[in-house]
Computed example of a mutant assay.
Amino acid sequence: MKKRNCIAGVFIAMGLALGGGAALAAGYPDKPVTLVVPYPPGGATDVIARLIAEKLPAAWGQQVIINNRPGAGTTVAAEAVARAPGDGYTLYMTTAAHTISASLYKKLNYDPLKDFAPLTLTSTIPLVLVTAPSLPVKNLDELIAYAKAAPQGLSMASTGNGTPQHLTGELFKAKAGIKLVHVPYRGDAPMLTDLIGGQVQMAFVTLSAALPHIQSGKLNAIALAHPRRVDAIAQVPTMAEAGMKNFDAATWFGLFAPSSMPAELRQKIYQDVAKVVATPEMTKKLQDMGGDVNNSSPQQFQAFINDEAQRWAEGVKLSGAQID
């Protein structure tokens, strides 16, 4: 009798949980929603988050408030979101740094993979391999040959230790069999200044940041780490076309929630955000930044995150980068 009552209790609890999730989704939102961004205002992540936040109130009837919480390579913001309730009133717009942190940090007060519910991958912006205009190479073969002939190798700039740009360079170094001396910077602006000036020789740069300098001729674009060419620089080949297959790398912008969020609410938020991202106005703005519009479902985004975590773990291992 006790066993039957216990089993019945489990099924009742499951039914209440499922019903509660559906009810929560149906009434959501009934107050303002906070969208946490782990970077300062003005960067690409902040811009994309604000574009979405401006449009959602028309569907939700509630404000979406941006909360910029920079610090410690996105981990300050991520920890705050991981501890929040999964009721939909705390959302998180972040980048590839989120999956990298799973391998980069020895100790975190949260699990980047288990403590978050992926909602939708909004956009990806590929990385492009560029060289200083003073470097006498025009294509990937010439760059690799030049690096192999240099006794100390080439200097490779990045936007900081453990960033997608840094780890992509380490993966490239291993695959090409060349020497690269890593020179980390604090962000795109100082890195690009020195790259244009010839103080450093090459870098993998987010296309949105590199695009105006490629178009003006201040940087030489060697190859795009992307499966297909991009219209804005249609003359630049992909890495595969240039001779290095299966070498794709991008920074991406995705929306997460705490892992306790019910499936029904995850689906609702994804569908509402996807409608905003799919509008011609939003699509054009993302494409003007050099991005692809993804609008992935929670299930597709989860599979993407699993692949990303594996790839960046390899990059972290090759780079030797680690933060206590």
Results as ranks from 00 to 15, higher is better:
residue 2 K to M: 11
residue 4 R to A: 14
residue 7 I to W: 06
residue 12 I to M: 08
residue 12 I to K: 00
residue 14 M to V: 13
residue 25 A to G: 13
residue 39 Y to C: 04
residue 48 I to E: 03
residue 50 R to D: 13
residue 51 L to R: 08
residue 52 I to G: 02
residue 56 L to M: 15
residue 57 P to Q: 09
residue 61 G to H: 04
residue 63 Q to E: 15
residue 63 Q to T: 15
residue 65 I to H: 07
residue 74 T to P: 00
residue 81 V to C: 02
residue 83 R to Y: 10
residue 86 G to I: 07
residue 90 T to W: 02
residue 99 T to W: 06
residue 99 T to C: 09
residue 103 S to M: 05
residue 103 S to I: 00
residue 104 L to A: 10
residue 110 Y to F: 14
residue 112 P to E: 05
residue 114 K to W: 06
residue 120 T to Q: 04
residue 127 L to I: 09
residue 130 V to T: 15
residue 131 T to V: 13
residue 135 L to P: 02
residue 135 L to S: 04
residue 139 N to Q: 12
residue 140 L to V: 10
residue 141 D to L: 12
residue 141 D to W: 08
residue 147 A to Y: 02
residue 148 K to D: 07
residue 151 P to L: 11
residue 157 A to V: 08
residue 159 T to E: 07
residue 161 N to Q: 12
residue 162 G to R: 03
residue 163 T to H: 05
residue 168 T to F: 03
residue 169 G to M: 09
residue 169 G to V: 07
residue 172 F to D: 02
residue 175 K to G: 14
residue 176 A to M: 05
residue 181 V to W: 11
residue 194 D to L: 09
residue 198 G to V: 13
residue 201 Q to N: 07
residue 204 F to E: 01
residue 205 V to G: 04
residue 211 L to E: 03
residue 222 I to R: 00
residue 224 L to F: 14
residue 224 L to D: 04
residue 224 L to Y: 13
residue 225 A to Y: 00
residue 233 I to W: 04
residue 235 Q to I: 14
residue 236 V to F: 10
residue 236 V to D: 00
residue 238 T to N: 08
residue 239 M to L: 15
residue 246 N to D: 15
residue 247 F to S: 02
residue 250 A to W: 10
residue 250 A to T: 11
residue 250 A to N: 11
residue 251 T to L: 08
residue 256 F to K: 02
residue 258 P to T: 14
residue 260 S to P: 03
residue 263 A to F: 11
residue 272 D to L: 10
residue 274 A to S: 12
residue 275 K to N: 08
residue 280 P to R: 02
residue 286 L to P: 01
residue 286 L to T: 03
residue 286 L to D: 01
residue 289 M to D: 04
residue 290 G to C: 04
residue 291 G to K: 00
residue 292 D to R: 13
residue 292 D to F: 13
residue 294 N to T: 06
residue 296 S to H: 05
residue 298 P to V: 01
residue 300 Q to F: 09
residue 303 A to D: 15
residue 304 F to N: 06
residue 311 R to L: 12
residue 311 R to Q: 11
residue 313 A to I: 00
residue 315 G to C: 08
residue 316 V to S: 05
residue 317 K to Q: 13
residue 321 A to M: 12
residue 323 I to V: 15
